[in-house]
Design a protein around this nucleic acid. Sequence first.
DNA 1: CTTAGGG
DNA 2: CCCTAAG
Length: 564
Amino acid sequence: METEVEVEGNDEGKFEEPGFGKIYSSLSSAKQLTDPVVYKLVRVEGDGRLVPATDDEVMEVKDLLVDEKSEVCTVADVGQPIGCISNDRSSPGMLPQLESSEGLSPSENTEVDPDKLNARLEETGPSFAPSLIQSHMHQSGGVGECSNAPVLTEGRALTSTTVTTSKPDFSKLNGEICLDNLSIKELHETFKATFGRETTVKDKQWLKRRIAMGLTNSCDVSATTFIIKDNKLVNKGKEDGSDNGDGALANDPATGTTMSGGQQGLPISHGSQLEDQVVSDKRNRNIGDNSGSEDHHTEQRAAKRVRKPTKRYIEELSEVESKEASGKLRPIVKNSLLGQMSSNFHTRSARNVSLEGRTVVTRLDSLGGSGIQIPCVSRVRRSRPRKNFMALLFLGVADEDRQFLSTGAVGGHHKVLKQVDSSGDSDDNVVTVPTSKGGIRRKHHRAWTLSEVMKLVEGVSRYGAGRWSEIKRLAFASYSYRTSVDLKDKWRNLLKASFAQIPSDKGINSRKNAATMPIPEPILLRVRELAETQSQVPPNLSSSKVPGTGSSGNSVHEKQSGYL
DNA sequence: CTTAGGG
DNA sequence: CCCTAAG
């Protein structure tokens, strides 16, 4: 049986990414779950024709599906899993509201317990508004992440005697980050710093919006002025009397509940959920042409895929298995690429869980004939996917299986779920290397993105430095990598950074294009404040800095006694 | 298991 | 980021 596939071009802003065509398929029957496992890959020609994909394309797509953010998730409550891939993590095509996220099984942080949360919120600060709690409660799963930030740091006027030492990277005034004046190039850098990956999108507005979302951890970014102040978006144009500086702009779009309604029609994507950039480019549709040369990541990916399972993977797998009512998977043996592909889809969707930032799936090694389940890991490739595939889509072809793959928004009866996992920083290469005594350790460093840093700072301000596990659980619930130790380490570095490079700044200006953009001053300032508040100030350089700790009123209180 | 610190 | 000691 064939499913209907609709293809649309870059239509009226439904997709944020310029030129990104909407791809979705709609099932006409309820039979989806027993349906396809085999997907036919087709390419959408300029005139709308569907052309069978070439082998190369199939290969590429397969890679994409394995390496890319394209997650396949399963829905439990439907009784039958529905796989969905979202090629674009920014998930523009998502429905304005994800229904019943309760059903989501693979969510990493579904354990957000309302009660606990409530309690914690209460204990932390009475000032938390119900709406906030609300939005936190809905924060489970992949959707909630963007609501992490809203937390009130009210009244924290960063304005103070801010260091006007300008990092050229952000044009900022008094602790504000102003995106408006940035060039495309600068925006690209900012984007990279924010999300940890590059973009080639040239749409200034889009970039600004995206960055703003990342920096504010809010999805609710109106597209007029982009000035981020103290983690919040400041709307310069409008009177600020209305919004007290917080909350108003940062609610949880995922729930749709507290949105400050209808500023625009794109409530969905998380700022930080940004993933690989999709560059639409109809001119580049020529796939066979550049598939080989264009991608400098190809080799990495190739290498990545052949890693054998490590002990940790196995362990993780067991965790997964115990969690899910292990469904029986039939090995699907196909010789063709399509066969492999479908096999991947299938297994992925069958049990695809993100653990520790890795997407762990069980794969039936049908090709090997062993029938043994092998946990395999697929990490997300860092930079953007091959744009050419934006025009590719999958046609579900009925078979004897129960998974269905759908992408994007779908009108109709089945739900589209967003994958969980990372936000803007979908880095990969978390290759682990076995150590001599059987242990394993991460090999590559995962660069901290700005949004992560900001979350960390937020967390410290809320729970206090030292409560790493708390911060980990609450503020970093969605960042499965980043252990509490990581947080601690990062904080240590932040402290160092914040107190170090204050004095001289001129000379550093040259590194505008530095791969690692320095932490924006506003953030460092905040770090400094927090450090002082919690007397974490390194003894040696405790001089010149204007404490500015006057900005009390934050939630750090004196519960820090242990650290004082 | 979580923190703190050193490597 | 890793490892270890300590609570």
